[in-house]
């Protein structure tokens, strides 16, 4: 798989006359893990959805390796990008295998081939959830559900993985597991990952780059060490925070009080 470079140029989105993203431009290098951080309403999730064409921006373009994403057919586009929603609910009963198999939708016609089945079971194994294959989705815990949603996106065999707050509903063990999977994926499959993140400390530990959003705009972009400093956190979140270094020298944020 050849990794792609993702470029977002001057992206603007709003609904009901209210702007939620205002002229966002950024570049995501091949094989990078990028975290979008910022306070509630800064537009993290909206940006993820605009990149994945779930929402249609009023202005601006997304380029994949220099090609306009909007020119691709929805099928071809969905072979490039996998999306993991913040949480998944299934109204009707599906087995885990069936749900992950849905990720093959961009690749298959009506018949499932042996190859599709292989990819699904390989993905389940990669995520360490193979024993759930015949279980029903609604019987699983939040953390397990999140892994299955990720497995579905992986079965798409995307070049870019988009995750909308992947850890927000999980306990600390599942948070780490999910982040480790993202890390492992990006390493082994040479894809890139873009995540909307609330937890600055997880973002700090697991991202190559941080995009800080403030007031619908990109405030700062850079590696965690240069972005996650008290000054920026106070400006963006309105919180006085102490930033210390963890054992690996990565910034660890301790919020003190709102200013």
């Amino acid at each position: 798989m050849v990794a792609v470079k993702l470029t977002v140029s001057d992206l603007t989105f709003g609904y009901d006359g209210k702007t939620t993203l205002d002229g966002i431009s950024l570049e995501i290098e091949k094989g990078d893990i990028v975290s979008l951080v910022g306070p509630n309403g800064a537009g993290k999730s909206t940006l993820i959805k605009c990149i994945d064409r779930i929402l249609k921006p009023q202005r601006g373009t997304v380029y994949i390796d220099g090609k306009e994403a909007a020119q691709l057919s929805s099928k071809d586009f969905s072979k490039m990008m996998g999306y993991v929603p913040q949480s998944t609910t299934e109204v009707f009963p599906y087995t885990v295998f069936d749900i992950v198999l849905m990720g093959r939708r961009p690749h298959i016609g009506w018949r499932v081939t042996g190859n599709d089945v292989k990819i699904v079971s390989r993905t389940l194994r990669f995520m360490g959830i193979e024993e759930f294959a015949s279980r029903y989705f609604d019987e699983l815990s939040g953390g397990e559900k999140q892994k299955i949603a990720m497995a579905r996106a992986l079965a798409q065999e995307p070049e870019v993985l988009l995750l909308d707050e992947p850890t927000s509903n999980l306990d600390i063990k599942h948070q780490l597991e999910v982040m480790n999977i993202v890390k492992k994926l990006v390493c082994e499959r040479n894809i890139s990952a873009v995540m909307a993140m609330h937890d600055l400390n997880l973002a700090s530990r697991f991202s190559d780059r941080i995009v800080m959003l403030k007031d619908k705009k990109v405030f700062k972009v850079g590696d965690p060490r240069s972005i996650l400093i008290s000054e920026n956190i106070e400006l963006v979140y309105g919180v006085r925070a102490e930033v210390i270094k963890d054992s690996k020298g990565m910034p660890y944020i301790m919020p003190i009080e709102p200013v």
């Binding site: 959805k49 994945d52 064409r53 779930i54 057919s73 929805s74 099928k75 071809d76 586009f77 969905s78 072979k79 990008m81 996998g82 999306y83 929603p85 998944t88 609910t89 299934e90 109204v91 009707f92 599906y94 749900i99 849905m102 990720g103 939708r105 961009p106 949603a149 579905r152 996106a153 798409q156 988009l162």
Partner: peptide, 11 residues
């Protein structure tokens, strides 16, 4: 059945 957003992202 997984929701509109997921369906869109599946093309």
């Amino acid at each position: 059945s997984a929701g509109e957003e997921v369906a869109v992202s599946l093309g």
